[in-house]
Design a protein around this nucleic acid. Sequence first.
RNA 1: GUGGGCGUAGCUCAACAGGUAGAGCGCUGGACUGUGGCUCCAGUGGCUGUGGGUUCAAGUCCCAUCGCCCACCCCA
Length: 416
Amino acid sequence: MIKAPPGTKDILPPESEIWQKIEETARKIFKLYGYREIRTPIFESTSLFQRSIGEVTDIVEKEMYTFKDKGGRSLTLRPEGTAPVVRAYLEHQFPQKDQFQKFYYMGPMFRYERPQKGRYRQFHQIGVEVFGPSHPMMDVEVIAIQWRLFKELGIDNIEVVINSLGCEKCRPAYRERLVEYLRANRERLCETCQRRLERNPLRVLDCKNEGCRRVVREGPEITEFLCEDCKKHMEQVEKGLQQLGIPYRVDPFLVRGLDYYTRTVFEFIHKSLGAQNTVSAGGRYDHLVKELGGPDIPGIGFALGVERLVLILNARGLQEEKKPLYFILLGEDSLMKGMELMEKLRNNGIPVMWTGKTGSIKAQLRLANKKGASLVAIMGEDELNRHSIKIKNMETGEESEVKWEEVSSFLSSYYS
RNA sequence: GUGGGCGUAGCUCAACAGGUAGAGCGCUGGACUGUGGCUCCAGUGGCUGUGGGUUCAAGUCCCAUCGCCCACCCCA
């Protein structure tokens, strides 16, 4: 038997209903904040990701699905959503015609990693990107959107963690000081961190190893190195969050795995997720647009992992959708008339379906029951002759015979 | 890429110390002729992930391989 490739999976009902719920809620909220959808290709030129994410990151070095097409072009299945959106923003001349843009996107991303809880090779992200504003209140807005989304989905015990990564003026000084400090404590670090120290020292900050954490906690904090502008930016973000009543925690050691972030970074963390406990994250990227060949336009965005969100929602259990009215039709004549009746009910927005069986009433009723129907409509010769149909409540067993013309209004309150 | 755990019926799991595979649930039908759920009865179920090896004999022991899960790593 052929199975789905490792790290991929089918999203079957009823789980697909949770996905729809998430997507619908997200779209509704994005609209509320004035964001519009952008859809970019699933694959892009490999160089786009090399230049944006950073050559020495793990994503670029070993996790990309890269291949050559028949024309010899090197293409890569997108490992994240921001770079493609920036590329589209530039390709369609937005800086020249309408710099200020708020986009949202949702779709699959691809990274070649070993699958585990909350981590897949094909996974889905929902995210936004804002181009233009450098004001800290836009950072607050982007965090507020996520906060609202989780709240609306009924997730409350989520933790918001923020930090500032500084800018090109202040980060180098911190980085230098950090490397100096870490080198001095080299023998206390784990093996991977000793390697990281030379390649990507900021990543030592979020090592999970207890020994490394202790070293990090005793070391320099970026907060102390921020320049006046960055410090002020951070303060404003905090004030904004307080104003909106969004609880948060500052973690001076929070960093991101992608090179392009500047100033504000944030993560939304949920305990139930296991080792991959970040459900949503992002930050400001003030020079990414420039690095990809455009003018120096600041940006900020977030991405959330849909699979991880589903994990949280699944663990909690989501309320069942209302089941459609099941039609039990006995005999050819009833079936024919029933098809017509069902169409009429659908015209009025009432979800109905035929059991698909032509057998005995018992068999059909049993099927409807198995499918969890709460209401069924029964029509045989008797009802047909009386131009009516029986509506049966499967929970109470109660039945009432209703004229064809009145079925729709009879049901409207239940299915409103 | 590294480590640990696990692969037996559609699902959850049994099978003493190697002796030729079993239960519950599910599914189909019946008892019940136009009324489901409950009950009872019957039926349906498997190349024990795959390929080798040891043995008179392998679900069980050994090796390899594939897959799943979790963790490292990484990140949404």
